[in-house]
């Protein structure tokens, strides 16, 4: 009880990170439904790593004295640029000769992960920031993120509201979409670019690990809870928000890293959802 009142009294400390986390949880939960249904969870892992690589590269360029370059291309802009390029590549390029698509996705993930670790090792200034980017220990967020992340989330949500039927159609039945002359490549690219945009802004604020967790786990949990498509989106948004809010709460009261706390909360909800389904079908 005392911990709770201490938590409530310190609202000025957690208010902004909680807002950013909850909005990220909501939009990642929403977009995660497409990622899970299209069976491209590993694409989201790769995009979060590439986004991290963009931030790390920006820090590195600044560290070696390319200040003019880094002021023109800040961590967010470089991360956004690289993530969108990667998303467009995965959406548009389908034929990789003898190599499967999964193989190319794994290549992107591994290259970006290796790059982040190498750059992290070379960065003298901002080493702490690299750790934050990867694992999300952000108890304090940049004030601009309080406006930027909800702004990007609203933009992504509006795009999805307009193209809801089309995104579902091209994800579910590519052949019929082609038969009806739907612009398949453009719609797929737009869908993944909205994911890239959200990943780029939220990775910088929360870290790669919690963003990946919020993209995958709420939607997976929701699949255990409902068999209705629209409810799947609603549940996934709610679980995304819940994971982020509980993650921040436990991070605050237990003094544990925020990103890991969000990830574990989302994982616990996933286990509970799986248990709920097991009970429901065994009765």
């Amino acid at each position: 009880m005392e911990i709770l009142s201490q938590f409530i009294n310190s609202y000025f400390l957690w208010r902004d990170p909680m807002i950013v986390g909850a909005v990220t949880g909501a939009i990642c939960g929403f977009l995660g439904v497409y990622i899970v249904l299209r069976r491209i969870i590993f694409v989201s892992a790769t995009l979060t790593q590439i986004s991290s690589f963009g931030v790390a590269l920006s820090f590195y360029l600044e560290g070696i004295g390319l200040t003019i370059f880094s002021s023109l291309i800040g961590p967010f802009a470089l991360s956004l640029f690289l993530t969108i390029i990667a998303a467009a590549f995965y959406a548009l390029k389908r034929d990789f000769s003898r190599i499967s698509r999964e193989g190319v996705i794994a290549f992107g993930f591994l290259l970006a992960s290796g790059g982040v670790i190498i750059l992290g090792d070379r960065i003298t200034k901002g080493a702490h920031d690299i750790s934050t980017i990867l694992f999300g220990s952000a108890v304090v967020v940049d004030p601009i993120d309080v406006y930027l992340i909800p702004g990007v989330a609203i933009l992504a949500f509006v795009i999805h509201l307009i193209y809801y039927k089309d995104f579902i159609f091209v994800s579910f039945d590519t052949e019929s979409a082609k038969l009806f002359k739907y612009p398949l490549r453009r719609l797929n690219a737009l869908l993944l670019i909205t994911v890239a945009l959200v990943v780029a802004v939220s990775t910088r604020a929360l870290g790669a690990l919690p963003v990946f967790a919020l993209l995958a786990l709420p939607a997976l949990s929701s699949l255990y809870l409902t068999e209705k498509l629209k409810l799947l989106f609603v549940f996934s948004i709610i679980i995304g928000i819940l994971s982020a809010v509980l993650g921040y709460f436990f991070s605050f009261i237990l003094s544990i890293p925020t990103g890991a706390s969000i990830t574990v909360c989302a994982s616990i909800i996933f286990i509970l959802s799986a248990g709920w389904r097991q009970i429901r079908f065994s009765i």
């Binding site: 069976r39 039945d173 699949l223 068999e227 209705k228």
Partner: peptide
């Protein structure tokens, strides 16, 4: 050919 992971209703 349809992926059963999609919870698409008959009406949809």
């Amino acid at each position: 050919k349809f992926d059963p992971i999609f919870p698409i209703s008959v009406c949809e």
